Amino acid sequence: MNPRDDIRPTATPATATDPPALVVGVHLVLTEADRVLLGRRRNTRYAAGMWHLPAGHMERGEPVTRSMTREAEEELGISITEEDLLLVHTLHHLDADDGRSRLQLFFRPTRYEGRLRNAEPHKCSELRWWPLGTLPDDTVPYTAHALAGIVRGSTLSTVGWAG
């Protein structure tokens, strides 16, 4: 075998002028009067045991609205059409744990079909409605930040960035 036949491409280090690689998260803000639905995370690498909105990540090849409707079905067993999603907050989050830039999108459905249930008990130990003004102390910090912004009517915020 010719040594040149085994040449593999190598990754080039990113530079400051390269476009950022973003992780895109989608979060469902289900409210009832002044309460919001949160789930206690279980068996997860991130924030196990903490309260968080029903959420997930955008998968390759799908728009963010489809990501959100898919996550609602997977986690809560409800159906939401993409047209029934309102973007209520955008959070640009610099994750202190891994240094990755994350764009967190928070959607509120105008309506949905089905009965809410914990469809992923292996990832969520319980679902509970919490008053928006008094979230539990062990809520994922960026989730609490975004919900406070939503209550104030803010549609954009950042967390974890210097300055």
Rank of each mutant, 00 (worst) to 15 (best):
T155H: 14
H57E: 01
G133N: 10
D5N: 06
P136G: 06
R66D: 04
L91A: 09
T17S: 11
H89L: 11
L76M: 11
G56T: 04
G114N: 03
S157E: 06
G133R: 03
L132C: 09
R117G: 15
L87D: 06
E59M: 08
A48H: 08
R60V: 09
W51K: 00
H57V: 10
E120L: 14
I78T: 08
R45H: 00
G133D: 13
H145N: 07
M1F: 12
V26N: 02
E120S: 10
C124P: 06
G133M: 03
E74Y: 04
H57T: 04
M50D: 04
V88Y: 13
V26T: 10
A33P: 10
N118C: 14
N43E: 07
L38N: 06
A148D: 13
V64R: 00
R100G: 09
E62C: 02
R70I: 13
T44G: 10
L135M: 09
L127I: 08
T10C: 09
L105D: 10
A47W: 07
D95Y: 02
M58H: 00
A144T: 05
L132T: 07
M58P: 01
V64N: 01
E74F: 05
I7F: 05
M68I: 03
G163E: 13
D97S: 12
M68Q: 03
R45E: 02
R128Q: 11
R108G: 13
Y46N: 00
T65Q: 00
M58L: 09
L53T: 10
R8I: 14
T44Q: 11
T155I: 15
P131Y: 02
D34E: 13
P13Q: 00
T134M: 09
S154W: 11
T69F: 07
W129I: 08
L87S: 02
T15G: 06
A146L: 08
K123H: 13
T65S: 02
G99D: 14
H93W: 15
T15H: 00
G163S: 14
L76S: 08
E73L: 10
I78L: 13
G39E: 11
E59I: 12
N43Y: 03
G153M: 08
Q104G: 13
T134W: 02
D138N: 13
G160W: 04
A72W: 10
L147S: 04
L135S: 05
P109W: 03
H92K: 01
W129P: 10
H122C: 13
V64G: 01
P19E: 03
N2L: 12
H122M: 14
R40G: 12
A72G: 12
E32T: 13
T15N: 00
P13C: 02
R40V: 15
H93N: 10
V36N: 06
P54Q: 01
T110G: 15
T65V: 04
R66F: 05
A55C: 07
D34M: 04
L116V: 15
L103V: 15
